[in-house]
Design a protein around this nucleic acid. Structure first.
Lengths: 202, 202
DNA sequence: CAAAAAAATTAATCTAGTTTAAGAAATACT
DNA sequence: AGTATTTCTTAAACTAGATTAATTTTTTTG
């Protein structure tokens, strides 16, 4: 075992340890096991951690920056399904879990830093440190609740209101990504978003 | 410990054991621990295992029948967010996990049988039998993937196509629930669904 | 099995959001 | 700094799906 692990933990993984610490308590030996299986990566703007057709072998924890998940529809348009900013996990869980080829692209919207864990490493970790599996069970629960809420909103409030809610909930976000990506994520056209914005800023 | 546990397991819980068995292997003592914390319930048509304003203390595994999850919108309309049929878990995970009051109703669409597990029992079970937590981690992963796919479909295909896809994927289902519930779940009006159906049955 | 209640159909009118197209602003590149 | 590329805006014509309202069909219940 490398000596530094006994004294201090590599600081680049600290944001993830902090995030995990919100949900479960890992002791030092568990943290060491975890860190041994992580890798830290810088992703340049417009780079693709995942492209359509590949098997998604990694789950990415966003330390800094912003990633998006999207696919190209039959009609050739980009449809964004998720954004990942600080403290979010981003992957194609379907491809990741079942090792099937993905329909999605994961791309850095801006200069980003991520912590990546590959499928096998995570699988092993689940056995070695059950608390990690608990952590992901909780994260997935939250993801599921959020996705369900999104469906509910799509069905019950107008596109205009959904945009205004989004701006209210993630004001910083709206500055960071191009409007056309926001429109795609919200499921409306850029032109209609533009019309909404012209009306009045709130 | 009750004697029957050493010889045979109560058959009413078998469908759940079968389902769990698809994802993890429980040994006999783990199964006993699990069964000790479950309860079996019959739910009459139109009965409400959960009503708006209550804390959702149970997660329900549907053994037989069909439940729906819905809420009443500001404009007083029912919006269905989920159906649960055989082998599906149904709950308001937000309320269940955070013990907050729910915005939803869970109602039996037809005469149903469910296996219920309450929040504390499940919490304990996670500690006693980590494989149960793995099982739910996997279920939640699938739920999340399905919810994301639903969002993608809403954004990329027409209501008409979504209805046709649904009919193709769950043909039995379409016979079982009233059309107005299907319309609500798909996020369209009953009138429009009627128009689609009149066109031609595929 | 008749009456009431619940579910489904049809059609006319209306509207939130799309499409198409052209130009203006902002950003990146050499 | 100037040109090319990417992003955003505006406006007119159009459409998928909502709304309203009246009627029919099916299911439930006494």
């Amino acid at each position: 075992m490398k000596n530094y692990l006994n004294t201090s933990l590599p600081e680049q993984f600290q944001p993830l340890l902090d995030h995990i610490g919100r949900f479960v308590d890992l002791d030092m030996s568990e943290k060491e096991l975890l860190l041994g299986r992580l890798s830290f990566k810088k992703v340049k703007k417009k780079e693709y951690p995942l492209s359509e057709g590949q098997i998604c072998n990694y789950n990415y924890f966003v330390v800094k920056g912003c990633l998006r998940v999207y696919l190209i529809t039959n009609s050739g348009l980009e449809q964004i399904t998720q954004f990942g900013i600080e403290n979010w996990w981003i992957t194609d869980f379907d491809s990741f879990e079942n090792q099937t080829s993905s329909a999605f692209f994961i791309q850095a919207v801006e200069e980003s830093e991520v912590i990546a864990i590959d499928k096998n490493a995570l699988e092993n970790l689940y056995n070695e440190v059950p608390k990690v599996e608990r952590y992901f069970r909780i994260i997935l629960q939250k993801n599921f609740v959020a996705a369900q809420r999104r469906i509910l909103w799509i069905h019950t409030i107008s596109s205009e209101q959904r945009y205004r809610n989004f701006v209210e909930q993630f004001p910083a976000f709206v500055q960071r990504v191009p409007q056309y990506m926001l429109a795609s994520y919200l499921g409306i056209t850029l032109e209609f978003l533009s019309k909404i914005r012209a009306k009045k800023n709130l």
